[in-house]
């Protein structure tokens, strides 16, 4: 990784932040010397690795495996030991449908509504997100004045919390909001956008793009800046048309970054929850209910909570995510190879 200019500021910031830590670490040195005498170098490696592995084991790996057991049990009890084994009943319930395209024909209709909504969301959001961040990256890659300002501008919403993002837009899209104010100038009547099924879905897509676009723009911009300038100079000398330059030079050389971005956007879009939950609460009705919210509500929020069903749904979502992540790792490796060959 590269951290430009951090050689000057980094250690200073680090020193101040580390001062109390330094003191504590000096104190534990003596007992650890003794440990080293007993355990040897290999033992010390284990010692350094242990805290991390413990936390990973307890809070990531253990739940990951327990999840399968959970999805095979029924009832509303919290602890696995109190739950009754039901086999694949939870999965059977999720898949109990006479027509998969019509959620109303399913036993667990909200699940299929959530699946359908998430599917549409992924298709729309990923397409638009890639389009917007690619155009923005191409524009930022031009010979601009104050480029770092423009780049920071598009990045700004990325740092905002999902709750803040949701509330900002809820405020803008409400009846007395800024959007209606703008449209009022063109003679439109105020409209409660978030009470409309179609518009609230569109708002969910638009707001999530607004909030995360800057992040992907940065990755694409880094890819664009890595393309050797002499290729463009050669193309200019040959009088190649700009569209052709884009299709023949920019796009192929950007492809590794673009593929990684596509998969990253996909993975995040499948898990969409926070900002939409604050913005619309899944409504009106179930029009912006997505998979994570379904899992959350089935597992925790509703009166008749059913952790087993939520676990089964989360495993199905996990399968999709694992496939996408493996694709990403595969793409990452092949782009590494290309990088090595250059």
């Amino acid at each position: 990784m590269t951290i430009d200019g951090s050689g000057k500021t980094g250690p200073r910031v680090g020193e101040i932040a580390m001062a109390p830590v330094r003191f504590a670490m000096g104190l534990v040195d003596a007992p650890l010397r003794k440990l080293q005498k007993v355990a040897g170098l290999g033992g010390m490696a284990t010692f350094f690795l242990l805290p991390n592995m413990l936390i990973f084991g307890i809070f990531v790996l253990l739940p990951f495996f327990i999840n399968f057991a959970y999805s095979m049990t029924g009832g509303s009890a919290l602890f696995l030991s109190d739950r009754s084994f039901v086999g694949v009943d939870q999965y059977a319930r999720l898949f109990d449908c006479s027509n998969y395209l019509d959620p109303n024909s399913c036993a667990e209709d909200t699940f299929w509504t959530a699946v359908g909504n998430t599917g549409w969301f992924v298709v729309l959001q990923v397409t638009l997100m890639i389009a917007f961040s690619l155009v923005t990256a191409l524009i930022l890659n031009r010979d601009l004045k104050a480029r770092s300002f423009w780049r920071a501008m598009f990045f700004f919403p990325v740092l905002l919390s999902p709750v803040v993002v949701g509330l900002i837009w809820k405020w803008i899209l409400q009846r007395q909001g800024l959007l209606n104010f703008g449209l009022y100038g063109f003679g439109f009547d105020p409209y409660a956008w978030l009470n409309d099924r179609t518009w609230s879905f569109a708002a969910a897509v638009a707001v999530s793009i607004w909030a995360h676009m800057g992040f992907y723009t940065l990755i694409l911009l880094a890819g664009l800046q890595a393309i050797p300038k002499d290729l463009y100079e050669a193309a200019e000398m040959d009088g190649t048309r700009s569209m052709r330059v884009f299709m023949r030079i920019t796009l192929p050389l950007l492809m590794p970054n673009l593929l990684v971005v596509i998969v990253l956007v996909l993975i995040r879009a499948v898990q969409i929850f926070d900002e939409v939950y604050v913005l619309t609460g899944g409504g009106p009705g179930t029009s912006t209910l997505f998979l994570t919210q379904y899992i959350y509500e089935t597992g925790f929020a509703t009166q008749l909570r059913n952790p087993g069903l939520a676990a089964a749904a989360s495993i199905l979502m996990g399968v999709v995510l694992v496939v996408l992540t493996l694709v990403q790792l595969g793409l990452g490796r092949s782009s590494d190879k290309n990088g090595g060959r250059k």
Binding site: F56, L61, I295, Y296, A310, S314, G318
Partner: peptide, 29 residues
């Protein structure tokens, strides 16, 4: 060492939304 590195990288594939139900029971326990 390689195994430990792989385990750590593999946890990238396990986001919160996938494990939140059992994680909740572990945190409660």
């Amino acid at each position: 060492r390689t195994a430990a590195m792989l385990v750590i990288l593999a946890t990238l594939m396990v986001p919160l939304s996938v494990i939140m139900v059992p994680l909740y029971s572990i945190v409660s326990a």
